[in-house]
Nucleic acid binder design. Structure first.
Lengths: 255, 255
DNA sequence: CAGTGGTCTAGACCACAAG
DNA sequence: TTGTGGTCTAGACCACTGG
């Protein structure tokens, strides 16, 4: 009864404000979301139970249920009856990576993780267009990486990647030839990509890009730009590149 | 007190089963969804209030709130405090149509509805590839439409459209030059498009397509295929076509 | 004003997991 | 057995819309 089982509510939580214009369950939800982002509970870790949270924040269990339910729908938490509430580890492989599928592959099929071959890595002053898109200050520099992306060892795209050097300090020294980038941003630079947009256009391949892709100059290619955003719609990554056809095609799900 | 205000619960509802393995709020939600699909309440029409539903189905208001809340998240209903709960009219313009945005337009901006100019309309035996994709029987025919799609009067794509003639009987006689197609499928052919997938590749424009798009032959274009599905993942529309660059670009949101 | 949906409470009972 | 989350109830108070 009076024993205190492994308390998972670390500091004494600052209590919620019932007179605030925003409802209690929402305050609680945002509070928990922030604490999860701060790694107070790590991925796959057990959260406090409904009763513990209700007691700690001095609200009813129903209010806790509503807050947790919303976080479940946002895929931040997962709940298991009889066991508890757990922090969902971020999943990247399903969402952002690999919108290119090899020709002949089916819809539901597992897609291979693309590799890449880095052609150049520099820390430089950004081109003006890049500085505007990433909303960089006057003297901010960027990590600029040019790479060839491959699937089963075959090149399918060349790409320039730009990251604010302020956030991604030392990124230019990493080996990214086999890795997915967004998990690295998340784990090593505390930068979670939550949304991205891409713009596609047909273009004639510039000679250099054509060379990397095994095409003749001016062959038709997809020109692709990507802007990736972290929390608060802050742009933190910009890419531009060319993708060839034949070996892969670009797939979009519309809902 | 005893007056019966405009009853919006039409037939005496068959009551829910508290001993069923599926929860009451879920039964209620599915029941309402079915009734909305059957047009018991039409788009923009007022649903019964929480209290009315609770009384009619003999459950608590909390259970009704949960069922309605889920339907709101599915965008089937919209609730307005002080007014009531309304059926959401199906919205097509935001989801499927017009993934092409004019150059220079911003993310949140309203996009114009594209027009089209029909080049040919026929009811024919489908090419084998089309028959396979639409899973047509041996002797089934298709409505085949070729059209030029325009934005602000300027052509940006040419497209072949294939529909199973069995479902879309008489579709070839319609004027579709100014209309969005999916609302027509929905209203006139009882076929709601719920999902679609597109495949993109760079190609050199065939001479005829190039002519319609104001390009020289072999200019780089986007080759686009689309398969659209109705309930139960049944494919009911197939498109293939070419889109030019310069005037528009193809935009994809990644989540 | 009466009626609507939005929030919140306190409690009940259940199915499930794990010791 | 204890503790978990999942469902359901009955009631309260509030903010808002409309007559």
């Amino acid at each position: 009864m009076t024993k205190t089982p492994a308390r998972r509510i670390r500091p004494e939580p600052q209590s919620l404000d019932p007179r605030a214009p925003v409802p209690l369950y929402f305050q609680l939800k945002e509070r928990l979301k922030q604490q999860i982002a701060d790694l107070m509970w790590k991925p796959d870790e057990l959260m406090p139970s409904e009763n513990e949270l209700a007691a700690a924040y001095r609200v009813s269990v129903g209010t806790v249920k509503k807050a947790l339910g919303e976080l479940v729908r946002e895929r931040i938490l997962a709940r298991r009856r009889g066991k508890g509430t757990f922090v969902t580890p971020p999943n990247f492989s399903l969402s952002f990576v690999s919108r290119f599928s090899p020709f002949g592959s089916e819809a539901g099929e597992a897609r291979p993780i693309p590799g890449s071959q880095v052609l150049s890595t520099r820390v430089v002053a950004p081109p003006q267009q890049v500085a505007e898109i990433l909303r960089l200050g006057r003297r901010e520099s960027v990590v600029a990486i040019t790479r060839v992306r491959t699937l089963y060892g075959l090149p399918f795209a060349v790409e320039d990647l730009f990251l604010p050097a302020r956030i991604f300090r030392g990124f230019e020294k990493r080996d990214i030839s086999r890795a997915l980038l967004y998990p690295i941003y998340d784990a090593e630079y505390s930068t979670r990509i939550v949304r991205a947009e891409e713009f596609l256009e047909p273009r004639a391949a510039p000679a250099e890009a054509a060379g990397h892709l095994g095409l003749r100059a001016a062959a038709p290619v997809l020109y692709i730009e990507r802007i990736a955003y972290t929390f608060g719609d802050r742009p933190v990554e910009y890419r531009q590149g060319y993708a060839r056809g034949g070996r892969v095609r670009y797939r979009v799900e519309l809902h």
